[in-house]
Design a protein around this nucleic acid. Structure first.
Lengths: 254, 254
DNA sequence: AATTAAATCAACATATATAAACACAAATAA
DNA sequence: TTATTTGTGTTTATATATGTTGATTTAATT
């Protein structure tokens, strides 16, 4: 059996059982656990599964709440650190765009005490988070609520964005590599992010370590579209070159 | 079971029970309380729950509830009855507008089990209430959030409305009398309601007894603009005449 | 305020799980 | 053929999840 074949079978098994142990899978295919671990890494990079200690679970997008909220739990420390650093780029009186990502939600949590801010977003969770901040003018794009992500997408939301022009946009994604750029797994979310980038003077890319070298099937943007790259871990050595070439400032939050 | 799984299950349990004891959770999953405490810390870091001495509660509840509780508390029994009656006018597959009023919120609470609904609203509170209903397509007008009422107002919100046409709009107000019509105390809220009435085939006026003969300083609509008048108490004798003249159906919820 | 029982925290222990470096054999290319 | 790559197995050091214990904090009651 070839590796690809095994990996696709692992996916099928996971779809059935929802979660499995590395050991369990290794026995089924008669290979070492190390091999399975490598398979799982591969599958995780494609965003198909979620690796855990001892095994893996299906990255089931359809399981709205549970999946979404567990995902939020992943590397929340890192995302919080990123949010804190990103917040430093926002000053009293600024007008900014926050996208519908957990990373941006953490940015929102760190700007509550700033004065005279205007925040434009398509994320219901961010609206909820900031709705009690008297000193923040909150603008929602409106549109059809995508329940999986609790964000507004579609033509309405994009059109709404075109009414504004801001100084800074904070954008995340599903996966990133310097060669392929920012990738998402949902076209609508990708489109909204593209629209956001167009409406902003400067762009800040929020990229926690879990996104490194992950992939999605739709390209949202390229590294060169951004002015800042904020992350929570040392980046792979060869990325520095790409950042310099694209003239993107690197911020590592710790 | 993996840690992530357990944590996501804990969330589900909390959503069900609202609050739980550490001990209680530990027994359910067959792990030590220390492990559960670590889980709860993790979830708290992500802002999903609030830890208490001995257990945890859901993070969400507090904010929106508390903020609007006062307003909702006013004749909430009557408004609930009105909401229930109003919900009877909504059928599977309908597209409706709900305004940003407590009365409309109660309508929302009574339509959660209907199929294939589309709800257009400018009320954050209603979006929040319906955001977990898989069978409801939720459309937000978007715009600038008016924090006092947690509703979207302004030109953006009004323009967004003009993209839609619905079969029924549910509207409330601050005060009403047959002679003066529906009155509000906020021009922006009034304008949104006017826009909503224009976008709807039929209009339903939600008017609990507390609004009888109250006044506001801006007139939103006249009785004749509506098809139904739903209230929770016998109306003053001389109002019947006006209702009949305007060809408005009276529904008294009890 | 003082007392007390319970809950929490911090530090450590431990069994697994994982990552990293290397080895090797089969498949592929030169 | 010989070299190179690729996938897998092996070994060892490291990391992780959970449990355990004892000190500390908290909340409830006197």
């Amino acid at each position: 059996m070839f590796g690809v074949e095994r990996r696709s079978r692992i996916l099928l098994l996971l779809q059935e059982k929802k979660s499995m142990l590395v050991h369990e899978i290794a026995v089924i295919f008669g290979v070492t656990e190390e091999t399975i671990r490598r398979d799982l890494k591969e599958l995780e990079k494609g965003g198909l599964i979620l690796r855990t200690h001892g095994g893996a679970i299906l990255a089931d997008e359809s399981k709205t709440e549970a999946a979404l909220e567990v995902r939020e739990g992943i590397n929340s420390a890192g995302k919080d650190a990123i949010g804190k650093e990103a917040a430093k780029l926002i000053h009293d009186g600024d007008t900014v765009i926050l996208d519908a990502s957990t990373s941006s939600l953490f940015v929102a949590k760190h700007i509550k005490d700033k004065k005279g801010l205007t925040v434009i977003t398509n994320a219901e969770r961010i609206i909820f988070e900031l709705s009690d901040c008297e000193d923040v003018t909150l603008i929602s794009t409106g549109g059809i609520l995508r329940q999986k992500s609790l964000s507004y997408v579609g033509k309405t939301a994009e059109t709404a964005l075109s009414n504004y022009h801001v100084s800074k946009a904070f954008i995340s994604c599903k996966g990133f590599s310097p060669q392929k750029g920012l990738m998402d797994s949902n076209e609508q979310e990708s489109d909204i992010r593209k629209a956001m980038l167009q409406r902003s003077e400067k762009a800040i890319f929020l990229c926690d370590r879990m996104k490194f070298d992950k992939v999605g099937y739709v390209v949202t943007a390229q590294l060169g579209d951004f002015d800042y790259f904020i992350t929570d871990a040392p980046i792979p050595a060869d990325w520095n070159e790409a950042l310099k070439e694209s003239n993107v400032a690197l911020v590592v939050a710790l």
